[in-house]
Write a protein that binds this DNA or RNA. Structure first.
Lengths: 128, 128
DNA sequence: TTTATATATAATTATACAATGATATGACAA
DNA sequence: TTGTCATATCATTGTATAATTATATATAAA
C-alpha cells in the first residue's frame, strides 16, 4: 500500500494547474486561445493593467504555458501547446455540469478586484 | 472588439482550476482517481492530517469535484465525473513536455510543508 | 539627439487561504 | 450509559502571491 502518492510529481502538477487557477492568467490564456497577441492587445482585451499583465505573462512563460517572440518593440505571446486549449475546453465542459457547485463553493471568494469597465468605484463583493 | 472576455465565466473556471491547483487537493484527487476511498483511507494514503483532509474534501465536495456517501461512521468519497480523471491525465501529459519550465518557475514556491513519510522531523525546504 | 511607445522589473501592501490544534458531532460497541 | 472511533468544524496563525505604483529598459520615430 503506497503511503505517499508521488510527492514531487504532485507538486509539479499543482503548480501547472495553479497557472490556470488565477482569473488574470486564465483571462490571458483564454485570450490567446485562438490567436497570438501582443502585450498591448492582451492589456486591451483583458482589462488588466500593463504591469500586472507583464507579471502574469512572465509567470506563464516561465512555466512554459506560453511563448514570447519579440518583433521590434512588440512582443507577441502565444500558447506553447495545443493541449492547453484542450485543457481549457475540458474545464469549460466540466463546468457545464458543476457550475452551480463551483459557484456556490464558499471556500474561495468568487469575485476579485473586479475592475469595473465604466467606473472605478464598484469593488470587492466577496462571497465567503 | 470585446473589451472583457467573460468575467463571471472566467471567475468560475479559475475557481474550478484552483481546485486542482493545491498539492493537498491534487493528492486527494489522484488518490480517488482509480477507486473511491473513505476519509480514513485518504488520510493514510495522502499523509495529510485528518482535519486538513476534511477541509479540502469539503472544498472539493462543495465545488462538485467529488461526492460523498455515508456508510455508518465512514464516509466514502469518489470523483463526481470521469472528466476529472481525464483532466488529470491531460495535465500529466502536458507536464511531460513542460515539466522543466514548471519546475524552474520561481513564481510559485515548489515545496510545501513536506510531511516526511518516515519521520515527522524534516520540513519546509522552499525553493524560491 | 530628444520624445514617444512598448514592455519589463522592483518594492510595497494587502489579502486569500493552507495548516494546525482544539473541539464538536455522530455512529457504533461494550 | 459510557467509551471509542470516524469525521467535521472552528479559530488562529502564517505565508504565498496578486495588485499597485513607481521606475527601468529598449525600440523606433521626429
Amino acid at each position: 500500500m503506497p503511503s505517499i502518492i508521488n510527492r514531487s510529481s504532485i507538486l509539479l502538477q499543482s503548480k501547472l494547474f495553479r497557472g490556470f487557477g488565477d482569473p488574470a492568467r486564465l483571462t490571458i490564456l483564454q485570450a490567446l486561445r485562438n490567436n497570438p497577441l501582443t502585450v498591448t492587445e492582451i492589456v486591451a482585451v483583458s482589462g488588466l493593467s500593463q504591469p500586472n499583465t507583464s507579471n502574469h505573462l512572465r509567470c506563464l512563460r516561465e512555466c512554459g504555458l506560453v511563448t514570447a517572440e519579440q518583433q521590434g518593440k512588440f512582443v507577441t505571446y502565444r500558447l506553447s501547446d495545443q493541449r492547453i486549449a484542450t485543457l481549457l475546453e475540458l474545464g469549460e465542459a466540466l463546468l457545464m455540469d458543476t457550475a452551480r457547485g463551483v459557484y456556490e463553493c464558499t471556500h474561495y471568494t468568487l469575485s476579485q478586484h473586479e475592475p469595473s469597465p465604466d467606473s472605478k468605484t464598484s469593488n470587492d463583493q466577496s462571497v465567503s
